[in-house]
Nucleic acid binder design. Structure first.
Lengths: 214, 214, 214, 214
DNA sequence: AATGAATGAGGATTCATTCAT
DNA sequence: AATGAATGAATCCTCATTCAT
């Protein structure tokens, strides 16, 4: 699990306000669509204060990104804790519930901000933004792997499966912001999860192990 | 399948140049990160020409988005043709190959542009950007559904499965732009596809149909 | 009566359309608030045509002004004809009716255009714009003078009286564009006219001939 | 009397300079004929300062208009004070002197600015511009009414008479800016005033109450 | 450390006008 | 003579940033 620690430094009240405003606005409008003045207004400080507490605009964006990621990392660790303490009963139900809870616990704001960072031309930001997803994927994959029958043939690839699920859900969260109610969204995510568990064809009916493309 | 026709109008050379430049730059830097002057320079025209041929910046962005989508729609229709002409042999191999070909045929540019549109606060752009993905999902779901054993229990949900796959691949394309070679990327996509087909646990070993959360 | 002849030159259809559009828009938005493109659009020609038929923007404005003035001059002459043919009966009623008819016959457009010309820093335009009012004032003053008792003491000054009335009515027309209905406007103008005829104090009660200020 | 208070707020030096420059230039060239850069240059500030101290161009115009009107309102109140303190001697001479003083005290600048506002398509500006004239008219009408013999037949209409005079004088001030010397202008205004007091025909000689047009 | 003012470049957009066709 | 394209400067306005207080 990559380290992306940040925010443990004590922030003054003004700095915290600015950071929250920056997160909100960068997430909503992206880097270029957000102005320092706008951030300052939302944080109820004058623009000068932004420059006293943060070096400049890129630096502020990076700080906002790191802050959001730090929180996300915490979530990965929380998930890990949950998984570590699981009883060995119904693995599938357990993981399903945990992933659902994770999905619901991720606000759109961080997701959007991370997406903007991924789209940016700044490789450092891209790397930063991708790391928390990798963390979640890693935790999920580990837990999955423990539950997989090691002698199954074909043996499922836990890492790939975890990646597919998390990226799909992440994308789903961003691209369906207002198109459905929370209830509908939850139902859709459950469908995705179920389908993910099931696979398309039950192995008994499925065709042979799939050709390696043409 | 939603209609998103565009670009049938004959474009002058300058307009076509501007449009291509706009697609490229909007895809790279987003709406706010791209300036009309920048577009004009890349298209080798003076800024005024942009305004003669396009109403304004939002309109140009929408035009670029529609153009990219129109091309994507063509791909959906191409995929549909491929599926319609399939022999009834190995369905899985056939679909796998087709989806792989689709994945490789989608340039990053349109994907990025569509992602920026999805992230924008403009609901029309969001809708436009999402439509070609829906088209692909629809075509894939239909074909999948034909191959699914109607009496299987639990019966796979073709629509959800298709959505999960396409959104996941789309996200994958965007978020992994430079992190791996083309070869690695292809291998990863194949893994995703295989995993998608297989499901995590073979039904025979799987736990019961999954609790509805909580 | 000053000569401000114009427009006898034969205009092509396009030129006439442009001129009418120019009059309308210059009257509505003033010189700087009106653009050649806007005029061309309203006249349903391309901007180039404006430059083929008129030298440039100032020249077009002057042409519009002259056109409007020429029509106004015609009105002055019409008024003159009316006055020349009057019977020698009720002079007051006759003039009142004629002035009312004049007031109603002057569209707001020319009045606004002339006002804009008066306000401009171009002395030629100022002179042009003021001339038709002077014409009307002159005609009215002559007719008034004929009706005034040459031995009255104090003897009314027909020129001043005419000027006061016409300028007041002109101002009234411009500054009360939408504030009252046509019916209300006519009633107000009649009040003005009556008051103008009457003077404030009947001479019998009036104080002596008025001090020459201070 | 309508309230149009403004300008009591303390203005910084730069803001005051900008406002004065705006008044001068808007009065000279109208709204569209005046540029922010021009105003900034005259005020000896950089254009950005204009936008720091005023919201935008329309807002600056409105501020300029309100400032000019506030000064005018003060004049109306001054006139009122004068009228309230008048002895009951020669009413006509007293009012004549007061109106003359008012006329001379109104600079051309405010008059032009108000005229431009009246001509604009902005109803709020029209209303603002017209209000100070209404104030003066009201004050004058009240004082006139006190002096009018209530039993005179036909009884003069003080409101209409006041309106006619003030509008006429206002128009006169604008349309005769440079055409005569100050001395000539004063003489002309005195003529107008005398004529206004007198009416055209002494009632004894006048024809019957004037036909209501047709 | 908070504030207002300054900077100067750059944002989108439109202007009047002219050149090639 | 009609048209589209070009020109280049000007429009209003905002940007990120820094300098004086």
């Amino acid at each position: 699990m990559k380290q992306a620690k940040a925010e443990p430094v004590k922030l003054t009240k003004a700095a915290a306000q600015i950071l929250e405003a920056a997160i909100e606005l960068f997430a909503a409008y992206g880097y270029f669509g957000t102005t320092i003045r706008h951030i300052a207004q939302k944080a109820k400080v004058i623009p000068m204060t932004v420059y006293r507490l943060f070096k400049n605009k890129p630096s502020l964006f990076e700080m906002a990104l790191r802050t959001v990621i730090a929180r996300s990392v915490d979530q990965a660790q929380f998930l890990k804790t949950v998984f570590d303490n699981k009883d060995n009963g119904n693995v599938r139900a357990f993981i399903t519930a945990a992933v659902l809870r994770w999905y619901e616990s991720v606000p759109q704001q961080p997701a959007r901000l991370m997406m903007y960072a991924c789209l940016s031309r700044n490789e450092q930001w891209q790397g930063l933004a991708y790391s928390p997803l990798e963390d979640i994927i890693e935790v999920l994959a580990e837990t999955l792997d423990e539950g997989i029958d090691k002698k199954a043939k074909p043996r499922p690839n836990a890492a790939v499966a975890a990646r597919t699920l998390i990226l799909g859900l992440f994308q789903f969260k961003i691209t369906h912001p207002k198109m459905r109610s929370a209830r509908q969204e939850k139902a859709a995510v459950e469908d995705i999860l179920n389908q993910w568990w099931m696979g398309i064809f039950p192995p008994s009916l499925a065709n042979p192990p799939a050709s390696k493309s043409t």
